[in-house]
């Protein structure tokens, strides 16, 4: 077999996603937690693209066929845009918290507690 089946890409995306989820749970540095969230977003992107390549379904009856192959790629482009905005905001918040609290342990942050 020379061509990689869809299940291979899905398995890789699944493993990357689970590794990212483990990181979000066990790490205490908020920057590393952000990195793990990026890892999970990338795993989702990989699944989107694998499905776009191997399992294309029509959008709607009146949509031209040349657009129906683009679903997954469009989703990935928007995920990248959202990820860029999210990282800018999140790192800004981490910087602001660090400036006021002088500590970054995520388990010690109880700023929102009443």
């Amino acid at each position: 077999m020379t061509e990689v089946p869809l299940a291979g890409y899905l398995t890789l995306a699944l493993i990357l996603f689970v590794v990212g989820a483990v990181g979000v749970v066990i790490k205490r540095n908020p920057i590393v937690i952000f990195m793990c969230i990026e890892l999970m977003l990338n795993a989702a992107n990989l699944a989107f693209l694998a499905f776009a390549k191997y399992h294309t379904t029509p959008l709607a009856p009146d949509v031209p066929a040349s657009y129906t192959f683009m679903n997954g790629q469009m989703a990935v482009i928007f995920v990248m845009a959202v990820a860029a905005a999210e990282v800018a905001i999140g790192l800004g918040i981490i910087m602001a918290i660090f400036r006021t609290r002088e500590e970054i342990d995520i388990d010690e942050m109880n700023l929102m507690k009443g």
Binding site: E3, L6, A52, K53, Y54, H55, T56, F69, M70, Q73
Partner: peptide, 14 residues
């Protein structure tokens, strides 16, 4: 082709 083994997308779709 919908079984996930053979790609059904055109070659220049990326």
């Amino acid at each position: 082709t919908f079984a996930g083994v053979i790609s059904n997308a055109p070659d220049d779709f990326g």
